[in-house]
Nucleic acid binder design. Structure first.
Lengths: 239, 239
DNA sequence: CGCGTGATTGAGGACGGTCAATAGGTGTGG
DNA sequence: CCACACCTATTGACCGTCCTCAATCACGCG
């Protein structure tokens, strides 16, 4: 095993899961945590596996993907630094309902299901925080469900990019760049379409100067124009 | 005539939210609960309202509907007896993200957000149970998201009917009947299509003797045939 | 008996999926 | 250092599913 990285209490305190806890509790949490490096491409857990660990991400980017019986894949969400993942499964059925894939080299931390259960019993605040986080994700997925049901592909792609920009956007000279490798296929799996359609849409937007594409890379140059598309506004003559 | 108002502790004990609690805790929960009759058609809470109450259903059927900016509606889920609703919102953001509509005359029970918060702090088990329930719903919605992304309309309608049959099915002579008024429009809003397409599909199935339709009413006569469609099996010659 | 809500059914067309071919980048090995 | 292989992206042509528009019908209710 690699030598345990120094788990930074400051980072853990930043996790919403542990907000509102006192120093003693945080110290105990840090003591019981296991930190490790995760190489790009690693499958952290697989769909169908028993949910034995609660995970959180210190650094990097993780993709949560659900696969159907026929092999069709859907990106459930992207996890960034400071977010937990795989935790809901531990307390709801005990089976991971999706794969977790490291998109870049990551630093992760985890607790065993038993340990986290004890922590939650002793510090109910953690359970309430978890409820908060899971509830927000439920709302977000419900919103995506509505978008997928009622909106056309172009609007959905616009929404997806805006969501990504909020979660993983990095300001650069020419706009906001998604700071991890993101293929057309990935965007297609987020929006319920094909990579072909995504490619066509992005090409169109690139022609209008709204975005700038690259290999596994997207930069948003005119966020407001994207918002106009996402909200189906009449025509952004100017803004 | 109105249904009898039954503030039955036994029913509350049946709620997954309160499973595993001792008699004293249950007594306290019952004492702090408010029970009431809810007339068919009542909006129990509305999208955008501050989430002030945690609800559970003793009897009846409630539809949770999310509305988009353009007025497009999506059925998020149906709530049956023994299920909680509106609770996740109380602990995640404090705003109801959807409307709750009584489809039939119901008996409901609720607690104030503050009361439920105290109960959860005192009995962490409740918070863990809530996490369990919300986690399962998250998984369910994620699965629907995948279906909506990757499956054709017919399969989605089949899945929706099977889910409804499991949640609200009543065995009758000719098969399994959905035990509450369910319009083609409702099914369309569950599956991301139009009532026209749903009507066409059900007509087709009725011709094959798979289902039996009526006004705001559906009975499944050959569940296995529906499963075959939902799972996209080659061709159910017979079974 | 007329009205309203929900359901059915038809015709036409478009959005976007499928098939197919090509081009551009990246990394690797000779 | 170049060449090749592989992966990703682009773009075109075709066409099928399903949405849209529209008319009619059935049922229940006042």
């Amino acid at each position: 095993m690699t030598p345990p990285l120094a788990p930074d209490p400051a980072v853990l305190r930043g996790l919403r899961l542990f907000s509102g806890l006192d120093a003693a509790a945080l110290a105990e949490i840090v003591r019981s945590a296991h930190t490790r490096r995760i190489e790009k491409g690693t499958t952290i857990f697989a769909q169908g596996d028993p949910a034995a660990l609660c995970h959180a991400l210190i650094d990097g980017r993780v993709k949560i993907v659900q696969t159907g019986a026929d092999g069709q894949q859907v990106v459930v969400r992207y996890i960034g630094a400071g977010e937990m993942f795989g935790t809901a499964a531990v307390f709801s059925g005990g089976i991971y309902p999706a794969d977790a894939l490291a998109m870049v080299d990551c630093v992760g931390v985890h607790w065993s299901a038993a340990t986290m259960g004890e922590l939650m019993e002793r510090y109910p605040r953690i359970a309430l925080n978890a409820l908060d986080v899971v509830g927000r994700r439920l709302q977000e997925v419900q919103t995506r469900l509505r978008e997928l049901s009622t909106e056309r592909v172009e609007r959905r792609v616009a929404h997806a990019l805006l969501r990504l920009a909020r979660q993983a956007g990095r300001r650069v000279g020419s706009g906001v760049e998604i700071d991890f490798p993101l293929s057309r296929q990935d965007i297609a799996e987020m929006t319920g379409t094909t990579l072909h359609t995504v490619s066509r849409i992005l090409s169109g937007w690139e022609g209008q100067g709204i975005v700038e594409g690259g290999r596994q890379q997207v930069t948003i140059r005119q966020p407001h124009a994207l918002v106009a598309i996402a909200e189906d506004l009449p025509k952004p003559t100017q803004a």
